[in-house]
Design a protein around this nucleic acid. Structure first.
Lengths: 158, 158
DNA sequence: CTATTTGCAAATGGTTTGCAGGATG
DNA sequence: CATCCTGCAAACCATTTGCAAATAG
């Protein structure tokens, strides 16, 4: 079974791999090659990636597609990744980096380019919604869509 | 082929059916029984419905499931319905009623109850996002999730 | 050693589609 | 009667799962 170090060149410390190792050890789960590789791929990409993209970015034939799916569930359970959906049929996952709190995305409906945003739905408004509705533990899912400058220029030129 | 009036009891005027008829006539498409029935089902329900739910709510054996899918595409193209996704694997559709502008939903993660909300993402903030990113035609997809009072009470009682 | 993981292939569930027959304008 | 629509069954695609073999601790 190929291991991460066998395939991946880590520029710096694979910080999240240590984090994962810690959490896994505590729950009697194992630190395997595929899991480390997947985490490494996520570390190298700032934007959310689809399972298929992660799989294609894995070096060599590290593991099966099913293993990527299973690993993402594991990472999700252990709160190491966040899942986002842009309504195009496949879920995307991004690493939760330290200090990388809750944020949203702006997606180009044409070329699918993704821009990270700082702006968020106002906390006070969310509190108001919770109060009025009586719902507990209210969270939100918010994504923006539009046409990026490049695609706008291209379609204007036609 | 069963028609709408054969099966559906309309309380008032099927306002949207007229709207649909107009738009269809203009594009040389046909006003069929299944389409009228589907629209009638949507009129009778305030909340977004999944394709399967719409199908099950249709009176008798009006049409095939595939026809419901095809009809929803048609209604979507003609801007008579809005599509929303709550991340549970199936898209939902709701009728765009006159004066029923853009709005969002609060979904109970436990029982899936849906509450319509008036609160929306501040227009100014969206404008700021568009300006800073240079994106055109910026829109957003926003949904809230939480635990409804009933489910909260039930889980507290356990 | 033993429980957890993995590959493989098959199953699943929502959605789409090809095609021949049926209905609408 | 030409065109659009529908039923049916098969295809699709993302995702999940059963099971026996492989592996981490």
């Amino acid at each position: 079974m190929p291991t991460c170090s066998q395939h991946c060149r880590h520029d710096g410390k694979p910080a999240r791999v240590e984090e994962l190792a810690d959490r896994l050890r505590r729950s009697a789960r194992k630190i395997t090659g595929p899991r480390q590789c997947i985490l490494a791929v996520l570390e190298q990409h700032a934007h959310p990636l689809a399972i298929r993209e992660i799989f294609d970015l894995l070096p060599g034939r590290v593991c099966d597609l099913a293993t990527v799916y299973r690993s993402m569930h594991l990472l999700l359970e252990h709160a190491l990744v966040r899942k986002v959906e842009f309504g195009d049929g496949s879920a995307r996952y991004e690493l939760i980096r330290s200090g990388n709190s809750h944020h949203h995305h702006l997606v180009c409906t044409d070329c699918r380019e993704i821009v990270e945003l700082d702006e968020c739905f106002p906390k006070e408004l969310e509190d108001t919604i919770a109060r009025r509705s009586g719902f507990r533990a209210v969270t939100h899912r918010l994504e923006f869509f539009g046409v990026c400058p490049r695609c706008a220029a291209r379609s204007a030129a036609v």
